[in-house]
């Protein structure tokens, strides 16, 4: 198998260099993503990265695989469409918090509900960097005059009963981030459902939160006795941590709910690769004429 890292014959495009500012948290996400795909031996030809709009949403241009750049906020429905058409693909939706939690929040909620076996990486930085620093849904109170309480996607995901993998990483902790990303990929590729990974990924230009977040992150993976398979326990503990001014990270919750594909697809052969010209369909179509009263 040919992995994203080691494509030998250059018969495809050369990825673009990232558009990000030096020091941007998104570099950490890109590095983790490359390493995870390589370590897990996921073939480049079977990988689809669905990018959102914003600085982070250009990440699909920076790897050698299949990529589709969606409209602002629409990366999740796009990714779900790809997955349902070909469930054998590794589908990774990647975008920012403005994309996912503001303009696309409706899809976020419904994707959590549906539990498709894809990975969703949100690079969360509390700001709209590409448009020069307006407050995003996760912006702290007071940031650029923000008066809206910040949105917490992990708590939201915990409150939806069909979620199966909820994690938060920090681009300042590459080791943990790569492990979480591998976990999310393994989760999705075992058809268990959505691997949701929010990454605290600071915008060094408009909202440099590295120092603050370094102090606030709290690694639940390292906490003895934390039961990530219990939704009430996860909700209680994360609420406590938030009250203490901490930001919980790690694999916060892991559960089991049938995936969207398990609920939806009626055959294992991907629709996208089906032979739709097969003459064996014709008698079956003719049978349907009987339904016309």
């Amino acid at each position: 198998m040919q992995s994203v890292q080691q494509a030998p014959a250059r018969r495809i495009y050369t990825p673009s260099a990232p558009i990000w500012c030096p020091g941007c948290g998104d570099f950490g996400v890109l590095a983790s993503l490359k390493k995870s795909l390589s370590d897990l031996g996921i073939a480049s030809k079977d990988t689809v990265i669905v990018g959102g709009i914003g600085c982070s949403g250009s990440i699909h241009n920076n790897l050698e695989c299949y990529g589709i750049h969606s409209l602002h906020g629409r990366l999740l429905p796009t990714a779900v469409g790809v997955k349902l058409a070909n469930p054998k693909l590794t589908v990774i939706a990647a975008g920012g918090d403005g994309d996912g939690y503001a303009i696309g929040v409706g899809h976020f909620i419904h994707t959590l509900k549906r539990n498709p076996s894809i990975v969703y990486i949100v690079m969360q930085n509390g700001t709209y960097g590409l448009t020069k620093g307006q407050p995003s849904p996760t912006a702290a109170l007071g940031y650029e005059g923000n008066k809206d309480i910040p949105f917490d996607a992990v708590q939201t995901a915990l409150s939806i009963f069909s979620t199966t993998f909820i994690a938060r990483g920090f681009s300042g902790n590459q080791t943990q981030l790569t492990e979480l990303l591998k976990g999310a990929l393994n989760h999705a590729n075992s058809n268990k459902g959505l691997g949701f990974l929010e990454v605290l990924s600071p915008c060094v230009t408009y909202n440099d939160t590295y120092k603050q977040w370094r102090e606030q992150v709290y690694n639940l993976d390292a906490e003895k006795g934390y039961d990530r398979t219990s939704r009430p326990a996860a909700l209680t503990r994360t609420m406590q941590l938030l009250d203490e001014g901490k930001i919980p990270t790690g694999l916060i919750y892991e559960g089991t709910t049938p995936s969207l594909e398990a609920n939806t697809l009626t055959q294992t052969e991907p629709i996208a690769l089906q032979d739709i010209t097969s003459p064996s369909n014709i008698p079956r179509y003719e049978e349907l004429l009987k339904d016309f009263r």
Partner: peptide, 8 residues
Amino acid sequence: IGAAYAGA
């Protein structure tokens, strides 16, 4: 669009 892109 996602499904069509994938080939359906």
